[in-house]
């Protein structure tokens, strides 16, 4: 994929929520490689919700749907109220996501980090 696609990520503050350490590390590493300032990563819904509400600047988020057996919906609520673009990374299929968030782009696991970055870049570009 072209480097220009990922240019939209440079300088952005992106929240990462993922409870598997090595996967979180992989995504965060890839984002940092694209010039992103990673917020998190958060391993629990509580931590992610806290960051989603208190971080003054958030340009986007990459979220695992299930953190330590808790669903991520409160974080989505907090981010939606701020208009922050979100990409979901999940092992679940579409049926699990509530109707209100069914429109959000999903990357189904296992997914290479590069794919997530591209979907996120597209979201940010669309959001302006």
């Amino acid at each position: 994929m072209s480097g220009t696609g990922l240019a939209a990520l440079r300088g952005r503050r992106i929240l990462v929520a993922e409870d598997e350490y090595f996967i979180a590390d992989e995504i965060a590493g890839a984002l940092e490689g694209a010039g992103v300032e990673v917020v998190g990563p958060a391993a629990t819904v509580g931590e992610a919700t806290h960051l989603a509400m208190v971080e003054r600047r958030l340009d986007g988020a990459v979220l695992d749907v299930n953190l330590r057996r808790e669903m991520i919906w409160p974080v989505l609520d907090a981010l939606a109220s701020r208009g922050v673009p979100v990409v979901l990374a999940t092992g679940y299929d579409a049926g699990v996501v509530p109707a209100a968030y069914a429109h959000l782009p999903r990357c189904e696991k296992p997914v290479p980090a590069g794919d997530i970055l591209r979907v996120l870049a597209k979201q940010l570009t669309a959001a302006g």
């Binding site: 409870d19 598997e20 350490y21």
Partner: peptide, 10 residues
Amino acid sequence: ELIERALPYQ
């Protein structure tokens, strides 16, 4: 890394 990072994180 597993012992020093992943265990505390997860």
